[in-house]
Amino acid sequence: MMEKNIVSEEIIHIKAPLDEKTVLSLRAGQLVLFDGIFYTARDASHKLLIELIEQGKPLPFDLQGQVIYYVGPTPARPGRVIGSAGPTTSSRMDSFMEPLLQRGLKGTIGKGNRSQEVIDLLKKYKAVHFSNIGGAAALIAKSIKKCEMVAFEDLGTEAIYRMEVKDFFAVVAYDTTGNDLYMEAIKRYGR
């Protein structure tokens, strides 16, 4: 399955927030183009989200079915929707995953490998992690059509934003059955 998806360069369109059927059908190595809504969060905003959960307080947005993009954009020039907006390193958010998955989070997007713990959590809660191209931030910004502040404004670049995206390119890195794009890559191309 992976062989076919990776090598064929076939890309499918999917919508965010994610529905269950799509989540279950995706496999590591599948290329996707997202249309829909993402919420952004990275280190500092994750810490605040977890604090709200621990205090039993409501979150600034409903996590059900949602996709979180790990990004801290550059400031937008006047007249532009957003600055440059590529992914940050996913594994720094590993320790924050479970409480968010428990509240219905279905997808995350970032760059680089995640821990075995996260791979197991994605299986348990039936969610998917995607990777997109780190360092292609000016190009990626082209697929972000709207961007508005949702919460934690004083965190600046680390605040939570709601983004509307169109044809946003990513690859499934970890799926609901435990497949791992990064492990497969080394197996396939290592010499």
Binding site: S84, G135, A136, A137, A138
Partner: peptide, 27 residues
């Protein structure tokens, strides 16, 4: 082939950054 696509996207990113005065990377 996907590796080639990534490199082409990185080169395209450099072109956009140069022409539109956008940072190459958000970091």
């Amino acid at each position: 082939c996907i590796g080639q696509r990534i490199i082409r996207d990185i080169l395209e990113n450099a072109r956009i950054a140069r022409e539109e005065l956008a940072p190459l990377c958000q970091d």
